[in-house]
């Protein structure tokens, strides 16, 4: 059994999105409960959140944006940049704890204290741009971790796999010119789903051209198509890139019972997805993989999906 880290903190529940929002604290409670009831909690190395060192946030986000986020949050503003990004007075602090928790988990991985990990954090991050909150996201947790790996640990090549059903526009844009980060995303086709980016022709730019790959999936498609696309697009790309560490933007919203999308993945498909990512990590990255939660809104399905996810990490 692997030493699998599990980042979770009750303070992640404090980011209050009000009564009419799908990105709710109950999502994390459902995941935690699923893992607990499956009897997996004692097998995991439990990690608590901590405030991020500002230098790692500033390495990805504009200082003016971070200040603005802090100010509007403490001024009691109810949303930021878009009506999607609803916030409460604890949102800024929670976002700092989430990013900091992911950094801490990454540090433990690099120090060899854990082999891999799942970070159950809120708010999510992959839509957050360097200077703009978008799609329920404020700080781009996974981009911050990738950057931390490169600067603090001299990791030369980071591979990011994003299987949230929405394209991770923020992550793509942050690294699109950077050949040391390969960003792969599979998501519902942007003509039908938020955020309207992630088309096949988006392949990175300048030095980073060829280090971004997108697989749009049509509404109504599911396991079979995902299986085909992952083998066609992700596997050869990562064989060639040979990442030293793999980061996974884990979204459970492509599930058939999740009403945020029209993609129809089965519960088993999510296990297959993380196992595939773990296979790539084993082959190229000494098994080093960190999964960070993005979306996934079906409170009914999240317990089982969360438990299956960490079980795959433990069994890797």
């Amino acid at each position: 059994m692997k030493k699998t880290g599990f980042l979770y903190d009750p303070r992640y529940l404090l980011h209050d999105t009000g009564p009419y929002h799908p990105e709710v604290p109950e999502r994390l409670q459902a995941i935690y409960q699923g893992i607990e009831e499956a009897g997996l909690l004692s097998n995991l190395v439990q990690i608590q959140g901590q405030r991020a060192d500002m230098q790692w946030i500033e390495a990805v986000h504009e200082v003016a944006y971070i200040r603005r986020f802090e100010e509007v949050c403490y001024a009691g503003q109810k949303s930021m940049d878009t009506p999607d990004c609803v916030m409460g007075s604890d949102t800024f602090e929670t976002a700092l704890l989430a990013a900091g928790g992911v950094i801490k988990t990454t540090e433990m991985l690099m120090q060899g204290e854990i082999d891999n990990a799942f970070c159950a954090v809120r708010p999510p991050g992959h839509h957050a741009e360097t200077g703009e909150a978008m799609g329920f996201c404020y700080f781009n947790n996974i981009a911050i971790a990738a950057n931390y790996l490169m600067r603090q640990w001299d990791v030369g090549k980071v591979g990011i796999i994003d299987f949230d059903v929405h394209h991770g526009n923020g992550t793509q844009h942050i690294f699109e010119k950077d050949p040391s980060v390969f960003y792969y995303s599979i998501h519902q086709h942007p003509s039908f789903a938020y955020p309207g980016t992630g088309r096949e022709f988006e392949q990175g730019s300048a030095e980073g051209r060829g280090f971004t790959k997108n697989t749009p999936v049509l509404p109504g498609h599911g396991d079979e198509e995902y299986g085909h696309y992952i083998k066609r697009d992700l596997l050869p790309a990562f064989e060639k890139f040979r990442p030293e560490v793999i980061l996974v933007s884990t979204g459970f919203d492509a599930h058939i019972d999740d009403d945020m999308s029209d993609v129809k993945l089965s519960t088993q498909a999510f296990t297959w997805l993380i196992e595939t990512a773990l296979g790539l990590a084993k082959e190229h990255a000494d098994g080093r993989l960190i999964s960070v939660l993005e979306g996934g809104y079906s409170l009914k399905r999240l317990p089982e999906l969360g438990a299956n996810h960490v079980r795959a990490l433990l069994d890797a």
Binding site: P83, G135, H166, M260
Partner: peptide
């Protein structure tokens, strides 16, 4: 212009 469509769909 939103990601949050599940409620309006319902």
């Amino acid at each position: 212009l939103t990601l949050n469509v599940s409620r309006v769909k319902k």
